[in-house]
């Protein structure tokens, strides 16, 4: 019980820290909306000029809903703790976790979940509102059915993205100035996750390749659940794959972390 209390406290601390930074979150949301707005104009122009009902398998409404929801879901799963991990590694801050009876991975994980908790509700509401706004004919029953999958898929996506970026952050053991690598990887992973465009846009080959990676399951997959693009069977299968990837990355991060710790020399003599 007390062991659980430990991590529950981490969760709360993450949450409080996020609330301290609520303005930061709102500003991020506003600046993120510019990119979304740009895309809305882009797709509107493309649909109008092409005179077509669908592009890359998306109707105009579906596409608009996708880019808006992708914008906010990207923000929800976005990590940022990789910089803190790198900082801990570089400055020797990791030492304080070594001397305390706490597991660094779980500490980070629960802080991360905690920091996401206050935003989650807000983001869920916006996402649902977007779907309803774009597709006015949607039945309440159908919406509930999609939500029944969307909510767990989103939680799994959050956990999955945590482990992806935890693995990325371990790079800092070998790269003293890891931030440049983080920025590049962040962008690449966001694109491969479908955080910018729907993955269908990049063509079938690309889709095939990324489907063997964990990335589409963090953004592309949950949005398509909400968007009504995939069948119930595919939803279930997707969630299973999310779980599988979480287990795989958890194992990898454990191994890499051990390797990294061997390299870790607390700074200062």
């Amino acid at each position: 019980m007390r062991v659980f209390g430990k991590y529950w406290r981490c969760f709360q601390m993450g949450m409080q820290n996020a609330i301290e930074y609520r303005a930061d979150f709102l500003i991020g949301l506003v600046s993120g909306s510019f990119a979304v707005l740009l895309q809305v104009f882009l797709w509107t122009a493309m649909f109008e000029s092409g005179d077509r009902q669908t592009l890359y398998g998306y109707s105009y409404q579906q596409m608009i809903a996708y880019v808006i929801i992708a914008g906010i879901v990207s923000r929800l799963v976005a990590t940022g703790f990789e910089y803190e991990v790198a900082g801990d590694i570089k400055s020797g801050g990791l030492s304080k976790f070594i001397v305390q009876p706490i597991h660094y991975l779980y500490f980070r994980m629960f802080c991360f979940f905690g920091s996401k908790a206050p935003q989650s509700l807000f983001i869920f509401i916006v996402a649902i509102a977007t779907v309803l706004l774009v597709d006015g004919s949607l039945h309440a029953e159908e919406l509930l059915r999609r939500l029944a999958f969307f909510v767990p898929a989103m939680l799994l996506a959050l956990a999955l993205n945590f482990f992806i970026f935890y693995c990325v952050s371990i790079l800092a053991f070998w790269l003293t100035e890891a931030w440049a690598a983080f920025i590049g990887l962040n962008l690449l992973i966001n694109i491969c996750s479908g955080g910018v465009f729907p993955l269908d846009v990049f063509g079938a080959t690309f889709m095939k390749i990324v489907s063997f990676s964990p990335f589409p399951y963090t953004i592309f997959f949950p949005i398509n659940i909400l968007n009504g693009k995939i069948s119930a069977d595919a939803m279930l299968q997707g969630c299973m794959l999310q779980l599988l990837w979480i287990v795989v990355l958890m194992g990898c991060s454990g191994l890499w972390w051990k390797q990294g710790m061997k390299k870790y020399i607390a700074v200062g003599g």
């Binding site: 007390r2 209390g5 430990k6 529950w8 406290r9 981490c10 601390m13 009876p101």
Partner: peptide, 9 residues
């Protein structure tokens, strides 16, 4: 302090 309280049980 609360966090340390939890960490050290």
């Amino acid at each position: 302090f609360q966090l340390n309280k939890a960490i050290y049980e």
